[in-house]
Nucleic acid binder design. Structure first.
Lengths: 226, 226
DNA sequence: CTTGACACAGAACGGATGTTCGTGTATTAT
DNA sequence: ATAATACACGAACATCCGTTCTGTGTCAAG
């Protein structure tokens, strides 16, 4: 009803690609005429026509009446990164820090953080309130996670089968990272390392899911000795 | 002989600061007139005058006759993140891709890449020609690295004790990631997982170090089942 | 066939923008 | 003092560039 082909047309893609390329090459956006020349469009009005569409689709932003007033939005293409704060440590014997929903920790400029290309993350996590924790100790070695690793988490209180989650086990009084599976009379928590045996939790035992593991980052330290 | 005060004048600093601020706010550089308005300079020619100086000092680059053709150089450029290209896969039975020194793979816009906060990397790796590989298979599970992980490498042909390196073992015809130790009559390659036993290479056996491991990134996939 | 939405081209208008020139005022060297 | 230089202002241009208007051709619906 609004668009002949719902997807982006050939020229839309060309313009988007050129916008990105040009902005990377020079530091400033191209003019309408330049866009036209490099995409085979001979009329400025047609370029304007497509830019309007792209803006309506939310793919770019335009500052009207301003030369080179075009910037591409979260088009997820290269260069787009996501900032994820490192909230604190995670250790076997301690509860893990969780983000307080009311506090906008994202605005904390001083906090340590990592930046990751959006293309590395699954689509559904793109806008999520991700946070990161730094692993202390070798207690999660059976999850193939070692001391110093950084785990990127997504807030969650429940999980689906096959997801790796951070759980607090009151039974053993510890935090652990395991693959989560629901079974007929309880839960199965399976280590990432297939050589390790899974543990079972019966249905009436307490089990607190703290979040889902989205990513693990290991940073190799330089050896101390010179 | 050429300049009254060799350092940057008040207006130079103001212009530089505004350039950076404006570029961050919008995605494009300001016009000469805008620079003037925000730095208390009432004439476009004076702004032009200072821009010429800044260009001669090598602090900015100008594209003459092009609107908003101002970009600042090494100053605040790059930001606090680093872009690392993913060159290809790494598997036990195959040689690993290594960057060709002559080829500037950094200019490859199409290549997949990850961005990482500089603060996460050791200082000495900041300017290094880092590259990344995607692990295929579970053959490096004894290095606590699993299928799908991404390893960030630094080119190297030798290593110091305690560093994790990627080595090609002609003896076993495979690539592996191990901690490297030189011993009196050969080398000891120790898995990251302390439960696994190290392997020894005698001094006359061939051993090719392909690079040092700087970082490991594990991205958790969503389970296939819905 | 007619109608209308859509894609496109070309030209013209007017404001935006970089450049140049004439002028003025301190400061410094000769 | 005089000249040279750095710094500054404002106006005049000549483009650059976004916008808008007119016109053409296509294609599917009525």
């Amino acid at each position: 009803m609004s668009r002949k082909r719902k997807g982006l047309g050939e020229r839309h893609k060309k313009i988007l690609a050129f916008l990105e390329e040009y902005q990377a090459e020079n530091q400033y956006p191209p003019t309408i005429r330049e866009i036209g020349e490099h995409t085979g469009i001979t009329s400025t009005s047609v370029v304007n026509y497509y830019l309007d569409q792209l803006e309506r689709m939310g793919l770019i932003e335009r500052d009207r009446r301003i030369s080179r007033g075009v910037r591409l939005k979260n088009a997820a293409r290269g260069g787009n990164t996501m900032r994820i704060p490192i909230l604190g440590p995670i250790a076997a014997g301690e509860p893990i820090p969780v983000p307080e929903p009311g506090v906008s920790y994202l605005t904390d400029e001083e906090a340590d953080a990592i930046e990751i290309a959006r293309s590395l993350l699954p689509e559904r996590e793109q806008g999520a309130d991700l946070y990161a924790l730094e692993v202390r100790g070798d207690s999660m070695i059976d999850a193939m996670i070692s001391d110093g690793d950084i785990v990127v988490m997504k807030p969650a209180i429940e999980a689906r089968n096959g997801e790796m989650v951070a759980v607090w086990l009151p039974r053993d009084n510890e935090t652990t990272l395991k693959y989560f599976y629901k079974e007929k009379d309880g839960y199965r928590l399976e280590p990432a390392n297939p050589m390790m045996k899974p543990i079972f939790i019966s249905k009436d035992e307490p089990l607190e899911i703290k979040g889902k593991v989205v990513m693990v980052i290991r940073k190799m330290e330089e050896p101390l000795a010179a």
